[in-house]
């Protein structure tokens, strides 16, 4: 089956009325996408400035399609008398199994020397000494494809020793906690403030059969500092801004004297600021790793 995609690029003021019009002709509703999101846009809770929007609806490419297009264009023509309207752009879209199509974006990837991340549904042959992590990408960050996650995985491979107590702060999908457990950590505490991430991590941990080594909790740094639990190795893959704020909330205290911490989610030009914040919380940065613009900082807590 074929579909006709009807797309209109409009400003915020026209968007509601155009969406309402397309809603009448489109199958099951409309999709409204923000155009031209600047390349360095972070999810920091602030609303984006108003932008142009592309409104899309889909009509079945059958004998009634021409009629629907005519009526739609007539209605847009009338609206154009009151407010300038662009011409709709039509594209033929082939019906695919959309429920499965997104999976084509994911392939097994190899990180570091032995880590092999594979989507749950892909049958892939691992090498004999590979450490395989199976993931079902979903609503929690950390699918192994992002440089910040890869930097952490490489650093964990170098620093996790059998028997360590590890903290994964901002655990997302749980990928780093799982890697730490598979690399030999005795116990891993995976902490995230987002209940959806906690649920996703739980499923991924079970899938990888490392549940006995990993505790997943919804919680913040504050509760952890108060608990007096201390770790041999902490991995914090969040964002520079958040890491700096955490440093001012005694982040360094969760690392035992002589222990180590890894910080990721940092853009190159933010690294100096993060290092300064780490020193303020009693940690000593001693090494950097870099992939593209992204930096991972390694730090130690002195005895």
């Amino acid at each position: 089956m074929e579909w006709i995609e009807v797309a209109l690029s409009v400003d915020g003021e026209a968007a509601e009325a155009v969406a309402e019009l397309l809603q009448r002709y489109g199958h099951q509703g409309v999709a409204i996408e923000q155009e031209d999101i600047p390349p360095d846009t972070w999810d920091d809770g602030e609303a984006l400035p108003p932008q142009r929007l592309t409104i899309r609806a889909y009509i079945p490419a059958d004998s009634r399609a021409e009629d629907a297009k005519l009526r739609l264009e007539a209605a847009l023509g009338h609206m154009n008398m009151m407010y300038p309207m662009p011409r709709p752009v039509y594209t033929i879209v082939q019906e695919e199994d959309w429920a499965e199509a997104w999976k084509a974006h994911y392939h097994p990837i190899r990180v570091g020397r032995r880590l092999f991340i594979r989507p749950l549904w892909v049958e892939a042959e691992a090498k004999p000494d590979d450490i395989t992590i199976m993931l079902d990408p979903g609503m929690a960050f950390g699918t192994g494809t992002h440089p910040t996650t890869q930097l952490c995985l490489e650093a964990l491979e170098d620093h996790v020793q059998p028997g360590l107590r590890v903290l994964d702060l901002g655990s997302g999908s749980g990928i780093l906690a799982i890697a730490a457990a598979k690399l030999g950590a005795a116990s891993v505490l995976a902490l995230d403030t987002d209940p959806i991430a906690v649920k996703a991590a739980g499923e991924n941990v079970a899938q990888n059969a490392v549940a006995e080594h990993i505790t997943i909790q919804e919680g913040s740094l504050e509760s952890l500092v108060a608990s007096a639990r201390r770790f041999d190795l902490a991995v914090v893959n969040i964002l520079a801004k958040v890491i700096i704020a955490m440093c001012d909330q005694h982040l360094g205290d969760v690392v035992r004297p002589g222990g180590m911490a890894l910080f990721s989610g940092i853009i190159e030009d933010q690294a100096d600021d993060v290092e300064a914040a780490l020193r303020r919380t009693g940690l000593q940065p001693f090494a950097r790793r870099q992939q593209g613009d992204w930096v991972l900082l390694e730090a130690r807590r002195p005895h």
Binding site: W3, H27, Q28, G29, A31
Partner: peptide, 26 residues
Amino acid sequence: MAKKIKAIVKLQIQAGKANPAPPIGP
């Protein structure tokens, strides 16, 4: 967990009836 935004899509759809057909799928 560096959350850089790639896209923002708003779907105007019927409550309780989301499915992989258009517009959601494509």
